[in-house]
Amino acid sequence: MTPSGDGGGVHNNPTTHGDHSIAANDIKNVIIRWVMHPSARWLPLLLACAALVIAGSKQPGGPAGQYTLWFVLAGLSLVTAAARVLLRRPRDIRVVGALSLISVLATVGGWLAFQNIQAHGEIDVTGEVRTEGKQPLDDGANDTLTLRLDASALKEPRNALRLTLAIDDHDPAGPTCLADTTATVSLLTSGVAAQEEKIRPGGTVDFSLGARVNTVRIHLKLHTARGCRMDVQATAAVLHDK
């Protein structure tokens, strides 16, 4: 803005607005040239594939449902990136820009969703559960066993363990004892408050682990009818955050 020579009036100086307009046009032209460059059309696809490979090598397992958002965003990033590659001579620069932008944003969003799964998602540790004790269990002196999870299964910190136990007749051909059978399951882990639940065959218990623990020890006591002999097995063990 400059003062006028006839009394100090103030007028707008168009030069400032002109400079801003020129700079904006220059930036726009640079972006357009970069987006339309033959090598640039491969970048979104390479970024999407790299994110997919890295995520696939680090996925923590667990139920497929927790990966839904990541699957959707990863698929969207790959589809739009592939469309950008196949669109060799686009008639409208806006189509190219939209495909590239959607692919990059979907890749970033999918990566953030995967990071959340890594930090808080469910982890299947069923194969890591060790059983200590002689089986089959009965209604006499041999009615207890211990289930353990060692440090290797607990390397990813979670604050709860959901455990499902199968309790079956040792002799499938004989009379079933399932209706008369229950089990008392107790969490006995150093640094964690003792917790106890009673479950039936095929039942599930959810224990709070609190802060990170190095081992988990669970004591099981079987309650069954006289003369019954039962086998106990962990059919599902999932670490998760409550």
Rank of each mutant, 00 (worst) to 15 (best):
97 G>A: 10
81 A>P: 05
47 L>K: 07
47 L>D: 05
95 V>D: 04
62 G>W: 07
60 P>H: 05
89 R>S: 08
33 R>D: 05
92 D>K: 11
41 R>T: 00
54 I>T: 12
80 T>W: 01
58 K>V: 07
55 A>I: 03
77 S>D: 07
72 V>G: 09
15 T>M: 12
98 A>T: 03
90 P>N: 02
26 D>F: 08
39 S>K: 05
54 I>R: 04
54 I>E: 07
16 T>A: 09
62 G>F: 04
64 A>G: 08
34 W>Q: 04
82 A>Q: 04
46 L>H: 07
79 V>T: 15
98 A>K: 01
95 V>S: 08
80 T>P: 10
58 K>G: 10
55 A>F: 02
61 G>W: 05
46 L>Q: 06
96 V>Q: 04
60 P>V: 07
16 T>G: 13
43 L>R: 01
72 V>H: 12
67 Y>T: 09
86 L>F: 03
51 A>W: 00
71 F>E: 12
45 L>Y: 01
76 L>M: 14
19 D>M: 15
6 D>C: 11
10 V>R: 12
66 Q>C: 00
75 G>D: 13
97 G>C: 02
80 T>K: 02
26 D>H: 11
14 P>H: 14
15 T>D: 14
28 K>Q: 11
10 V>D: 15
91 R>A: 08
4 S>V: 06
43 L>F: 01
8 G>E: 09
68 T>M: 06
48 A>R: 09
85 V>R: 04
56 G>Y: 05
12 N>P: 15
33 R>K: 10
15 T>P: 10
39 S>A: 14
3 P>E: 11
76 L>Q: 14
30 V>E: 07
60 P>N: 07
55 A>V: 11
73 L>N: 15
67 Y>G: 06
84 R>N: 11
29 N>V: 02
14 P>F: 13
43 L>H: 02
90 P>I: 00
65 G>C: 01
36 M>A: 12
80 T>F: 01
30 V>G: 03
70 W>C: 06
92 D>C: 10
63 P>Q: 08
91 R>V: 02
90 P>E: 00
69 L>H: 09
47 L>Y: 05
10 V>C: 15
78 L>R: 08
67 Y>H: 08
63 P>R: 07
33 R>W: 04
32 I>Q: 05
61 G>R: 10
9 G>L: 15
87 L>M: 09
46 L>A: 13
76 L>I: 10
6 D>L: 07
7 G>W: 10
72 V>R: 15
13 N>L: 12
98 A>W: 01
79 V>R: 12
69 L>E: 10
88 R>P: 07
13 N>P: 05
67 Y>L: 02
86 L>D: 09
21 S>K: 11
31 I>T: 12
65 G>A: 13
64 A>E: 13
33 R>E: 10
90 P>F: 00
31 I>K: 02
